[in-house]
Design a binder for these strands. Structure first.
Length: 204
DNA sequence: GCGACAG
DNA sequence: ATCTTGTCGC
């Protein structure tokens, strides 16, 4: 299914200066029987919240590295459908093309919604990289099988870098640029932080 | 057979 | 992802 859907990924520069960006995240109950999925739309200009959609659900699939999207996509699509404001870019918690078959969660959601999308992951799934420079904004190419599949980006000096990879209808440079703009103070972009809070709140 | 393995 | 324990820094 991933090999099939991958053919629908579009490689283009993407929006120059999106006015709205959405963060997506999922939280689980301790026993793994329930979950909450959130999509929070932020205004890029001041990082204020433009819209929020949160839904309760159940895991649609066990956690299997490489098949992660099948676990979270159903609930995230439910949340996306409840949005009032249509975001210009989707920023997912996980990888885009930095995946064994080049079709991680961010690419999957991008194809299903046909919205520009990319992933910001906290740890690597596949790929190797050279040490990243220390200052904020430094980046190193994430390489797998001889091709660049993403970037290891330092969003804060002296803090562990994040893994940025494109999903659909956006280029890596713009994805990194946006990630930096959305992470003025913390390691993770405000989109991810806002979504993480929203779904965690609904779960508890 | 052994190590790696998004969230 | 979630839980636990401990340390560092503002």
């Amino acid at each position: 299914m991933q090999d099939e859907l991958r053919s629908r990924v579009i490689d283009e520069p993407g929006p120059e200066a999106p006015a709205t960006v959405a963060g997506l995240d999922v939280a689980y109950s301790p026993d793994d029987t329930r979950l909450a999925a959130a999509v929070v739309v932020l205004n890029t200009a001041d990082l204020s919240i433009a819209d929020t959609a949160v839904v309760r659900g159940v895991p649609a699939f066990p956690y299997v590295p490489g098949l992660f999207a099948f676990r979270e996509v159903p609930a995230l699509m439910d949340a996306l459908e409840r949005l009032t404001v249509r975001p210009e870019v989707l920023i997912c918690d996980g990888h885009g093309l930095a995946h064994p078959r080049r079709f991680g969660l961010a690419a999957h959601l991008g194809v299903l919604t046909d919205l520009p999308s990319f992933g910001v992951g906290k740890t690597r799934l596949v790929g190797d990289w050279e040490p990243v420079g220390e200052p904020r904004g430094a980046r190193s190419a994430l390489i797998d099988g001889g091709e660049t599949i993403g970037a290891v980006l330092r969003t804060q000096s002296g803090v562990k870098p994040v893994f940025v990879s494109t999903g659909h209808r956006i280029g890596l440079d713009r994805a990194c640029e946006l990630t930096l703009r959305l992470a003025p103070r913390y390691r993770l972009p405000e989109t991810t932080r806002a979504a993480d809070r929203a779904c965690r709140d609904l779960l508890s």
